[in-house]
């Protein structure tokens, strides 16, 4: 008996006039463009670089451990060298002494590469408006996703990674430097989360009291 698992909404009804062979091919064979396939592969296997500066690194490490498990989202292997990594998470405060080191590591990451800025200090200097701290890593690196918090919860970092994956899924890069036009083409604009989630947040009127566990 042939059976398959589908949800009721997405399961397509069998088409009139088709043979069993057509039905079989429709259920089991997927036709897709090469660049879509490559984008799907790229977004589901982002390998992070083992880079942590400060307190946010502890929360990033917590996101890698068993309770929150970043590996389920494809960030399976954390690489010690930038040559084998795809993504650098600037976890923690960016110090002036450390800035050239971060820049060098970013340069040594191979294409394609992405940057997640984690924590208030990396986003904008955070509460450290002080002589030795760079006010945000975007002063010298291009950032893809900003994860806010001090430190952000591991779940927030997971959300940041998912947003990055969505964004990468919409990117198309040229197949070769010989043919195609160069540069990254973003199919859909990245949405600002503040705008999307604003109505939901404002609608919350019942807040939990801190007197109960």
């Amino acid at each position: 008996m042939n059976w398959s698992l589908e949800s009721a909404e997405t399961a397509a009804a069998p088409q009139r006039g088709g043979s069993e062979m057509d039905e079989f091919i429709r259920r089991n064979v997927m036709m897709v463009k090469l660049e879509d396939m490559v984008a799907w592969g790229r977004k589901n296997s982002i390998w992070p670089f083992n880079f942590g500066l400060s307190c946010c690194y502890v929360e990033m490490a917590t996101a890698f451990t068993s309770r929150h498990d970043l590996a389920r989202f494809g960030a399976e292997v954390i690489r010690g060298t930038p040559r084998q990594a795809d993504m650098i998470v600037i976890a923690g405060t960016v110090f002036r002494k450390m800035a050239p080191v971060v820049k060098q590591l970013y340069d040594q990451l191979l294409e394609p590469k992405w940057v997640i800025s984690m924590g208030s200090c990396a986003n904008s200097g955070g509460m450290y408006d002080i002589y030795s701290v760079v006010q945000g890593v975007d002063k010298f690196l291009p950032v893809d996703v900003y994860v806010s918090g001090c430190p952000p919860r591991p779940e927030a970092l997971l959300q940041g990674l998912l947003l990055l994956q969505e964004s990468i899924g919409n990117q198309r890069r040229p197949l070769s430097w010989v043919i195609n036009e160069q540069g990254i083409i973003q199919r859909e604009e990245n949405e600002v989360q503040r705008v999307i989630r604003g109505p939901e947040r404002i609608a919350a009127t019942e807040l939990r009291s801190p007197d109960e566990v």
């Binding site: 002036r96 800035a99 050239p100 820049k103 200097g125 408006d129 002080i130 002589y131 030795s132 701290v133 760079v134 006010q135 002063k139 010298f140």
Partner: peptide
Amino acid sequence: HPARATEMEPFTL
């Protein structure tokens, strides 16, 4: 010595 980063030259690299 200035305390704030915003009291000093903006950082460029």
